[in-house]
């Protein structure tokens, strides 16, 4: 896919490029390419902003935040709970820049909707990142073991992966959500991660299968390097790119999965909340109080979109020639 821009033909391009970039290390190249990906950079900034906003505003784990209202306290409805946030300047006929008492409005029993949305964002982010971390860890271990050892170990692990893959993701997540939904976001995230690793496991296995045939691994084996050392020192570093990209995208998918589960009533249970649950709770309010519907949706999209763009940037950075295929 780079032919148009860079490579005039198999004859010239390798040297033309090879000579100009030999001076850079792998890490520098990755960083350089990532920061050149403008959408990924924007995604990084937006995600950082959302995370900081969600956790600093209403506080987390007993640490108070700078926002004075809680997501649990009800209050008197002000102006039917309409949002007080205004971003349209006065000379354009708006109310000028103003945050106001309830920037995102209030829900039907007077809870500050900004606080509620922030709480939802916290929970969704926690679940998504936990799923990403756990699924990546398990998937990498299983995939690496299956890919390196082959034989009976591989057969067993891959059949296990097959079994897990046969069950549609949403379905197994729904069962887990139903079982674990009321134990809090952390437990839910951990357990979802434990069932969502197979895709990543297959990916890592594929990488291992091709890498273990490479000359440098043969060489390491020939001089009697232990399996452990070959896996961790020789093969794994070469799969880092693939794993990081897949992990990033799995976080983005987990955000959407969690919200879908909560929407179906199978995720985070009341009185705690998540973005998906907020949308589900207020879906009938779309006509009368649309802000109850818009804000959590907006945050889900912001989070998922920025993570997806970061993932795309990472993919470009780690392997600019890899086709951007999403299955």
């Amino acid at each position: 896919m780079t032919l148009n821009a860079q490579a005039p033909g198999p004859d010239t391009a390798p040297d033309a490029q090879g000579l100009t970039i030999t001076a850079r290390t792998q890490g520098q190249m990755v960083r350089r390419r990532f920061f050149r990906h403008r959408a990924a950079l924007a995604g990084m900034i937006i995600l950082g902003f959302v995370v900081v906003l969600a956790f600093s505003s209403i506080g987390f784990a007993g640490i108070p935040g700078w926002w004075d209202k809680s997501y649990l306290d009800t209050g008197a409805l002000v102006n039917q709970g309409k949002p007080t946030l205004s971003l349209v300047p006065e000379f354009l006929g708006g109310d000028g820049f103003r945050i106001g008492e309830h920037p995102f409005g209030q829900d039907d029993i007077g809870i500050d909707y900004f606080a509620l949305t922030m709480r939802g964002a916290q929970q969704s982010l926690i679940i998504a990142f936990l799923v990403g971390i756990v699924a990546t860890a398990v998937g990498t271990v299983v995939g690496a073991a299956a890919g390196y050892f082959r034989g009976a170990a591989e057969a067993t692990l891959m059949r296990l992966t097959d079994v897990m893959i046969t069950i549609p993701v949403l379905i197994i997540a729904a069962v887990i959500g139903r079982m674990m939904g009321d134990s809090g976001a952390v437990v839910l995230g951990l357990f979802l991660g434990l069932v969502l690793w197979p895709t990543l496991g297959r990916l890592v296995r594929g990488e291992f299968l091709s890498l273990r045939e490479k000359e440098f691994v043969e060489a390491a084996r020939a001089v009697g390097t232990s399996a452990k050392r070959i896996i961790f020192r020789h093969i794994l570093p070469n799969t880092v790119g693939v794993i990081i990209v897949a992990a990033t995208l799995s976080v983005a998918n987990a955000v959407l999965l969690e919200s879908a589960l909560s929407f179906l009533g199978l995720g985070v249970q009341a009185p705690d909340t998540s973005l998906g649950q907020l949308i589900s709770r207020y879906r009938s309010a779309m006509v009368t109080r649309p802000w109850l519907f818009w804000w959590p949706g907006l945050f889900i999209i912001l989070i998922a979109l920025s993570i997806n763009f970061i993932g795309d940037g990472l993919r470009d950075a780690f392997d600019p020639r890899q086709t951007r295929v999403r299955a």
Binding site: A39, A252, L256, A260, I279, I301, N308, D312
Partner: peptide
């Protein structure tokens, strides 16, 4: 860009 937005849309939100 549109494809990325679509990937990031919660389907139930769009449905509503």
């Amino acid at each position: 860009f549109a494809a990325f937005v679509c990937f990031s849309l919660p389907i139930f939100w769009i449905a509503v």
